[in-house]
């Protein structure tokens, strides 16, 4: 029996401790927003935050996560109001969308650490892969979100 704290809630899960967090989230908790793309830590589709750090959940055994705050795309905001989500819509970033939960989780962590990332900082942080070629828009949307997050009242235009 594993105990996990996901999106602020405590869950008890019947899964082997070596089961990657990705599959516990998807199969056991029904949090299917986190995606499987490669299973070897390269594509980033499975990115979640562990104590705020963007992490590829296919590479983390769920048994090692006692006491760690896990945040998935479902926990980012209740109503798509996170500035990154809004910027993603404003810039019409997703195509198939399969990689985008991972992209968004990586981008939100980047902006929390560095509210005004320069292009080369975006290059270094955004190592997630997208087969549909959304990269130019991902870059643009990160700049847009960064601008919104710096606005005094954090109340961006719709």
């Amino acid at each position: 029996m594993l105990e996990l704290e996901v999106n602020g809630r405590l869950f008890r899960v019947e899964a082997g401790p070596d089961t990657p967090l990705l599959w516990v989230l998807r199969d056991h908790l029904g949090l299917t927003g986190t995606k499987f793309g490669c299973g070897i830590g390269v594509c980033g589709s499975c990115t979640v935050h562990l104590d705020g750090v963007p992490t590829r959940s296919c590479q983390v055994p769920a048994g090692r996560l006692g006491g760690v705050a896990i945040k998935t795309i479902e926990g980012l905001s209740p109503d798509r109001s996170h500035p990154v989500q809004r910027a993603w819509i404003a810039e019409q970033v997703p195509q198939c969308g399969y990689c985008q939960a991972g992209m968004i989780m990586t981008a939100t962590a980047l902006l929390e650490r560095n509210p005004s990332p320069a292009d080369d900082e975006i290059d270094r942080a955004m190592t997630n892969l997208c087969r549909c070629g959304s990269y130019p828009r991902v870059r643009r949307a990160i700049h847009v979100a960064s601008g919104e997050m710096k606005k005094p009242h954090g109340d961006p235009e719709p």
Partner: peptide
């Protein structure tokens, strides 16, 4: 016009075959 399928693709609710 903004695409109708994108909101569900930024909040994890879009359901793919895998889901």
């Amino acid at each position: 016009v903004t695409r109708l399928d994108l909101p569900a693709k930024v909040d994890g609710t879009a359901r793919y075959g895998m889901d």
